[in-house]
Design a binder for these strands. Structure first.
Length: 198
DNA sequence: AAAGTGATCTGCT
DNA sequence: GCAGATCACTTTA
């Protein structure tokens, strides 16, 4: 089952913090691989941890564009990560695709990730997921409406602090399917201030 | 715990 | 323009 392009665009046009948990359990297909999302994080313009926080730049242009497009960025000199752009056109919000279960195209995914990578690790981690999907800088700005399908959904959703960031390290905008094996381990950034104790 | 890697951003000139 | 810091990560210890 799939909804119309207009309805799906409207789905992404909402607040990324609302959209993120609803993406869990959804299927995303690209380049011969389909993943079921198990872990995502929300970012938006009023968020110090977001690339969009300091305004639009050449890199973040897609993030400030219309919703439903893919924002791909390159980091740490070797990794790509992928987001689904959210919010209305002109707002800098997106949902980072952090992990998923490869449910179709395992062979294609393993070809990109490496022959001896176990199924569990094919897309468990944002850069791993992007590599499994065959995404790189050329996919920045690609229209994802039609590539995202509602799956069986998530039986439950957990929320907690986002992984690997130094700013806004206690904002609970990471969402995952509790108990799912295809969720990456939480790692606080070594330079982030100690966790708040509430 | 820290290296590896390079684009990007900031804050100077 | 240019230097220095930073970085939504992965891998190997």
């Amino acid at each position: 089952m799939r909804v119309s392009a207009a309805l799906q665009r409207a789905f992404f046009a909402r607040d990324s913090v609302k959209v993120a948990p609803e993406l869990l359990g959804c299927m995303v297909t690209a380049n011969g691989v389909t993943v079921r999302l198990t872990e995502v994080e929300a970012y938006r313009e009023d968020d110090p941890a977001s690339h969009s926080f300091r305004g639009e730049t050449a890199r973040t242009a897609v993030m400030f564009g219309p919703p439903g497009f893919l924002y791909v960025y390159f980091t740490y000199g070797m990794h790509f990560c992928a987001n689904l752009v959210c919010g209305p056109d002109g707002s800098g919000a997106a949902v980072l695709l952090r992990a998923g279960e490869v449910v179709a195209g395992v062979e294609a995914a393993r070809e990109r990730r490496g022959a001896k990578v176990p199924d569990r690790d094919l897309a468990r981690g944002p850069a791993r997921l992007a590599q499994a999907m065959g995404w790189d800088r050329e996919d920045d700005g690609r229209d994802m409406v039609g590539a995202v399908m509602q799956g069986t959904g998530a039986a439950a959703v957990a929320a907690g602090p986002r992984t690997g960031i130094t700013k806004a390290a206690d904002t609970n905008w990471r969402f995952w399917i509790p108990g799912d094996r295809f969720v990456s381990p939480y790692k606080r950034h070594p330079k982030a201030p100690p966790a708040s104790a509430d």
